[in-house]
Every structure is written in structure tokens, then in C-alpha cells.
Design a protein around this nucleic acid. Structure first.
Lengths: 333, 333
DNA sequence: CTCATTTATGCTCAATCTGAGCATTGTGCC
DNA sequence: GGCACAATGCTCAGATTGAGCATAAATGAG
């Protein structure tokens, strides 16, 4: 098992060679054409065959800092400067690791990284995938996701499927809180909680047999599975990012040097999974002073040409570094 | 080095026995009489003698989940139900671990826990300490901390102490961003960034020699040191908690079953380190529906008796689970 | 060339939300 | 009784928000 100088070996199967080893996982996010993408790799699955997963590998003590090591590795893989890197969470569940053959604990330290360009040059087995392929119920941009009809039915059945009235009540409460069932609102940040609920309810194939019930495994409804519980990591990343853009100007790390306000809006919408009121969005960006105009305007596209703007890096040094408040509109179909 | 059944051994020196081991660290927070406290223990210092630190110990694979294991351990130690547990961060800097004798990487997974009662029964070497003893510049409740005068002077000297004009500019920018120097505002959430800046500037004794400069080490100014870079963990916890109370009703985990609105306000102020406008605070709590009145009122204290209220647990199931927006007032001296 | 379509941009308006205070009401204490 | 100290009620102006209306400036179909 010789490795190069990389701490993380992306293309390789990431079955942990040493059960007590610590691993790194990265959710590397880009946004192109208004779609949110995550870098995925093909890994050796638990069963035979290969399956999709996130870039991951064992932690090697090459760099003085976890983040520094991750940064260097990702930048080499994606040929892109990392605009933003954030530690997400350290997962240590023995029952969710995928391989718990050894009795020893193994940890995965997960990171979120935002990149501007999406050339994945070199990396043969890696590809950028729309992240909603894995979590279809999270995309409300075209209105309520159709996947939710089936999901809700299955969840209600799951909640009602227990004889214990107290447990049933608790399950129903969780449904209301996470999926907005029973009059609650959809909170776009509760991505992880929704995934975990589906997992418990047996709707996630990765849970194979761990939770008694078995439900629909239609990929169009419950999304494409990933190896090693990596969908949980992805869900964590999306939820975190959706929260972050509201109070920190991190979206700009995904944008090209100059862009139009509408492109910016599309990107924010892609991340948050909801549509925004256009005029109010520009007003927000304007008064926060997040961007400055360039001389150029777009051309060739449909509609009136838009002015190109660029991110005002100075805002990072100003006030409580603002982001975007998200307020869904009814612009959807 | 026999240990009990506890994954974390609090009273014991936590010099990692195996340099590749993963450790847990916990910031256990309580609030009594309007003061924020953290549970501390005495540990064997890097040099001779004992010094203060946070409860920590090696991770043992006893529980299926990291959080579950930490929860069980803390509850046993503090004799209190943990209201809230949150993973903070995983620290992996080789140059900050305190002992980096072995070449291997060692990680510390840090957790934040909130407890209601503060009986630390049993635990001989543990004690609750006002967390501002370790970070005196973070407490603005009695007005601008006097410690800041000296700190600012030292920081300005540090920033100006480099010949490279670009580096100097960057340092000054960071001073403005974190400490509000040069016209910026004080952002109470940037606790960690402030600590790290002081660390870099050589004002933190724990940095002994790692950063060239050596500055004031007056404890009243730069706070009481901790072993193993645990002050960084504490700073992370405080910053995180200060952010959290603004949008999640976590303060209530620190309150007794019933309390007055003013006690609640005192607790929020203790955590955030800033004073709030009283009338607006109650208005906020009222319209958010965070509490419900009880029959009882206080007596024996100075001033008009206050109505006792209790937390409405139902809000956890309602809307985007609100917290407190903090807006400092000028009530301070 | 003209019109329908599409996107960009400017502006308005009412409903809230916020930050700051003023005023009044109860209690324990001297 | 008069004070000091809290608890509560209410007001008010300014800023923020959520929703639209209206207009301008391109492209592409016919």
C-alpha cells in the first residue's frame, strides 16, 4: 500500500488499512451554471463492485496542521486555489463507518472546501456531480420536489408504525421539525437532520439492515447512495454551507472574478435550494456593499445586458462580514 | 497507567501516553449568579509543577458514538444531566499540542457541554472557574475591559514591529477585524481569532518561544494560562456559544427550572460578555414565546418581585428555533 | 422590421423589526 | 415616609423586509 506524497489518496479505494487510523474526508464544492457540485470519486464498495464516494484517505502527519494538509492536497488534486476551507465535523460512529471489522475506533475528520474553477485535471476517477443527485428532496428551486410525495408517505408510515404512543409522538415531532410535516415550515438548513431521519426510517440503502424497517429505495426519490456513509458527510456540508452564506460572504469563493448579480443569485439559490426575490436580492447586495461594478457588461445572452461586478474583498475587513439573508419567493414554477 | 471505565480521565494528568492516540477535551459550561464558568482540572504541566487545564483524556472505544461516550463520561463526573452537547472542533496541530516529542500526529476532539447544576461532586481536583479569568479581555459587561489598554498597546507594537510594509498592513487589518482597532467594531463572537492573534503576537505564555516576540505576561492582562493549549479550546467554545445563543435557545440549558427574565438576561450577558437593553430583551423573549409564566414570584430580593417563568420546551418543535439577537446597550458603568 | 420574450434595473409601499427611552409600579430597608 | 432597586408597560422614530409595479435594453422568431 504505497502512497505518493499525498496525505489523502483520492482515486484509491479508501477502505481504511488500519482500523485505528484517522481519516480525512473532503466535500469539495463548486458551482457552475447555477448548479451546485461536489467532487466525487469511485471507491471500492462494501459489497462487490465500485460505488460513488467522497475523496478521502488516511491522515498522514506530513503537515503541521490538519487544515494545511488538506489544503495542499485538495489544491494539487483540483488544480485550483481553495478559496475557503472549513472543518466540518469529526465522525466517529463505529456503527456507521462502513467497515467496523476491527474493534477499534476509527475517526473521520470531514472538511468543506470551496473552489472556483472545476477543472479536475489529472484525477481520473473523480467527477463533479450535482449534489442534489444524492439528496433530491433538498432542491426546491423548481418548486416542491416531487420526491417528497413518496418520502412523506413513507415517513408517515414509519412514524405510525410503532405501537408506543410516546415514541410515535416524538417521531411525528421530528417530522414536523425537519420535513415541515404537520404545518411546520421547511428549514433549508436542516439537511443533516432530514438525512438522519430518513436513515433511521430505513429509506437510505446505506443503512442496510441497521434499522429494522426497509422502505423505498428508488434512487429518484431517496437519491443516489454513496459508500461509507459519505452522504451523511455531504448532508453536513450542505447544511453548514446553507447556514454560512447567510452571515458570511463565502459564496464569492465559488464565483469567477467578475460576474453578474443574477449569476450570483443563481449560485446562492443553487446552494440554498430555494429561489429568491430578484429585486430584493440586488438591493441586499447593494446596500451591504458586497460588490463593486466593473466597466464591462455581458453580451450575447438573452435579455438586457447586465453589468459585470466583482467582489469587494475589503468587506472582509469591515463590519460583521455580512452574507445573505434568504427569503424564499414564489418565483418557482 | 490503569484507568477506570471512563473514557476520559479528568483528574489525571493528560499527557498523552501514546503519541498517535486521539484525545477528547471537554469545555463544560455552567452559569451561576450571572457568571459563566467552565470546569477545570489540575494537570501535570509541560514544565514541572501542575497547571490548570480542561478535563481531557484519551478516547476509548467504549461507546458507539463519540458524543454518546462524552455524554456518559461528563454526566458521571458532574452528577448532572447534560442539556446540550456539541462537537466543537478537532485540533491537530503538531506544533501546538504541548508535547510533540513523538513524530506522530495526535488529535484532540473538543466538545462543548452545557450543564444546569454545578455540583462537581467527587471530582477532587476539578473546580468551576469564571472563564473570563482565562480571557479577561472578553468581558465587556462592566465597560471596556481595562486589560485592553495594555493589550492594544502591545498589539500595535507587534504590528508595527515588522519592516515589511505589506505584512504590517495585514497585521493592522487583523487588529481592526478582531479587536476593533482603527475604527472597527468589537464583534463578541471572534473570541478565537482574538486569542490566536495574541498568541501570534507573543502575548500568550503558552506560546513560549514559538513566536519570536515576547510580550507582557501579566496575568491580569493576558489571563491565566492553561496547559496543553487548552485556552484555545476554551476560546473556541466561547465564540461558538456566543454565536449559538443568537439563533438557538440553548441558554435555557444553563437555567434552573424556573427563573426570572432578569436572571435569564444576566446569563445571556454573562455568555456574550456584553450588556443588553432590559426592556428590549423582555420584549424579544415575550414575542418569541420562549417562556411561559408560572404562578410564583420572587421574594426577599431587592426591588419589586419578579414573576418566575419557565422555558417553553415546545419552541424546540416550532419555527426556526429562535435565540437571542444581541444588541449591546450602554448600561455599563 | 416588429413584436414577443427575457433579463436588468429603478422605485414604491406597507408591515415589521429595532434601538432607545420615559413612566409607573411594587418591595425591602433605613 | 422616603429611597434605592427592580419589574413592567408603552411610545416613537428609523431601519429592515417582503412584494410588486414599471421601464429599459437586448435577442430571436416571423
Amino acid at each position: 500500500m504505497t502512497r505518493g506524497q499525498d496525505g489523502l489518496a483520492a482515486g484509491e479505494p479508501n477502505a481504511l488499512p488500519n482500523p485505528s487510523a484517522v481519516g480525512l474526508v473532503a466535500v469539495i464544492v463548486a458551482a457552475t451554471d447555477g448548479e451546485p457540485r461536489a467532487l466525487t470519486v469511485q471507491v471500492a464498495g462494501q459489497a462487490a463492485g465500485r460505488e460513488t464516494g467522497l475523496p478521502a484517505g488516511p491522515l498522514v502527519p506530513e503537515h503541521p496542521t490538519l487544515e494545511r494538509g488538506l489544503r495542499a492536497w485538495v489544491e494539487r488534486q483540483t488544480q485550483a486555489r481553495l478559496g475557503y476551507v472549513e472543518q466540518l465535523y469529526t465522525f466517529g460512529d463505529r456503527d456507521r463507518q462502513g467497515d467496523d471489522s476491527g474493534g477499534l475506533h476509527s475517526l473521520s475528520v470531514a472538511y468543506l472546501a470551496l473552489v472556483r474553477e472545476m477543472r479536475s485535471a489529472g484525477l481520473a476517477e473523480a467527477s463533479w456531480r450535482n449534489w442534489y443527485a444524492f439528496l433530491p428532496w433538498e432542491d426546491w428551486r423548481a418548486g416542491r420536489p416531487t420526491a417528497l410525495d413518496e418520502i412523506e408517505a413513507a415517513l408517515l408510515a414509519w412514524a405510525g408504525g410503532t405501537p408506543d404512543p410516546k415514541l410515535r409522538r416524538r417521531r411525528e415531532d421530528r417530522l414536523g421539525l425537519t420535513f415541515g410535516l404537520g404545518g411546520g415550515a421547511w428549514n433549508e438548513e436542516r439537511v443533516l437532520e432530514r438525512y438522519e431521519l430518513l436513515f433511521e426510517a430505513g429509506l437510505i440503502p446505506e443503512a442496510h439492515g441497521q434499522t429494522g424497517e426497509a422502505g423505498s429505495t428508488d434512487i429518484a426519490t431517496t437519491g443516489q447512495p454513496m459508500g461509507f456513509d459519505h452522504r451523511r458527510v455531504l448532508a453536513t456540508a450542505i447544511g453548514r454551507l446553507r447556514g454560512k452564506i447567510k452571515y458570511r460572504p463565502v459564496v464569492f469563493e465559488l464565483m469567477p472574478p467578475t460576474f453578474t448579480l443574477f449569476q450570483l443569485q443563481r449560485t446562492v439559490e443553487a446552494l440554498s435550494g430555494a429561489n429568491l426575490h430578484k429585486q430584493n436580492f440586488r438591493r441586499l447586495v447593494a446596500q451591504q456593499g458586497l460588490v463593486e461594478e466593473t466597466e464591462e457588461v455581458t453580451s450575447g445572452t438573452a435579455g438586457r445586458p447586465a453589468r459585470l461586478v466583482r467582489f469587494r474583498r475589503e468587506v472582509l475587513l469591515e463590519r460583521p462580514a455580512p452574507g445573505f439573508r434568504l427569503t424564499p419567493s414564489r418565483r418557482s414554477s
